[in-house]
């Protein structure tokens, strides 16, 4: 804990340390900026993937549409919640914003998996590790700008903000996986996706949480004691 000899001494030290600041842009604008980065990655993937095959695949399996919509909504709502939580005066309840989309995503993916089991479709296991690598490797370039943008704010709940930010990145990466994913949601796939998403969220919580955590530093040149 930082302790100054008196509140007056701290007030004077903080005033002396004051520099002009650029006011933070509204959270909605910052969400759009991050989503634009995700969109740019999506465009790049569209260049190298067979978009027509993807659309045909999604049209053939209605559950996949729902699952896709769920993951897109999760990415958007989780990003919105993370930017809200990145401000000190917002309530922790913002963390619940992506919950309905998460339920839709999990539910629709689970339905696709059950349908595959009921129809005794062959379940491809090869390629699952590629899914894992894809989600993990894409989550990193999506997480970095998100954390940098969140650090411009000031979160009083850094770990919760990092968890929700991790969810946004993982769901965005899982959405983008559809460009190259040739299968319906088989049980193996679903498990691998869940593991990948969990890894991304945990990694964001550990590293992102630390990056978002601000130490209470004393103003420059002031005399303080740390208890």
């Amino acid at each position: 804990m930082v302790r100054f000899d008196s509140n007056e001494q701290l007030v004077q030290a903080l005033s002396a340390d004051l520099t002009p600041v650029d006011r933070l842009a509204p959270p909605s604008l910052r969400v759009l900026l991050w989503l634009a980065m995700v969109g740019a990655v999506a465009l790049a993937l569209m260049m190298v993937s067979d978009v027509e095959a993807m659309i045909q695949r999604l049209m053939a399996a209605p559950d996949m549409w729902l699952a896709e919509m769920g993951s897109v909504l999760t990415a958007v709502l989780a990003a919105a919640a993370a930017f809200q939580l990145g401000l000190p005066d917002r309530k922790a309840a913002w963390a619940l914003l992506p919950l309905p989309a998460v339920l839709l995503w999990i539910g629709a993916s689970g339905m696709g998996c059950l349908r595959s089991i009921a129809n005794a479709y062959p379940m491809p296991t090869a390629g699952s590790e590629q899914c894992l690598i894809f989600i993990l490797s894409l989550s990193l370039p999506l997480s970095l700008p998100l954390i940098v943008m969140l650090r411009r704010g000031f979160s009083l709940r850094p770990n919760l903000t990092a968890i929700i930010g991790g969810l946004a990145c993982a769901s965005a990466a899982a959405t983008l996986l559809n460009f190259i994913h040739p299968y319906d949601a088989a049980a193996t796939d679903l498990t691998v996706h869940a593991v990948a998403v969990a890894i991304v969220i945990v990694a964001n919580t550990i590293y992102g949480g630390r990056l978002l955590m601000r130490k209470m530093h004393s103003p420059a040149g002031s005399n303080f004691q740390r208890f």
């Binding site: 804990m1 930082v2 302790r3 100054f4 509140n7 701290l10 007030v11 903080l14 340390d17 004051l18 600041v21 650029d22 006011r23 933070l24 509204p26 401000l87 000190p88 005066d89 411009r152 704010g153 000031f154 009083l156 601000r214 209470m216 530093h217 004393s218 103003p219």
Partner: peptide, 15 residues
């Protein structure tokens, strides 16, 4: 004092 320090570090977030 913790609150004053937080205000100082979070002053760019005030709308």
């Amino acid at each position: 004092q913790e609150t004053l320090l937080t205000i100082h570090q979070a002053r760019q977030t005030y709308d």
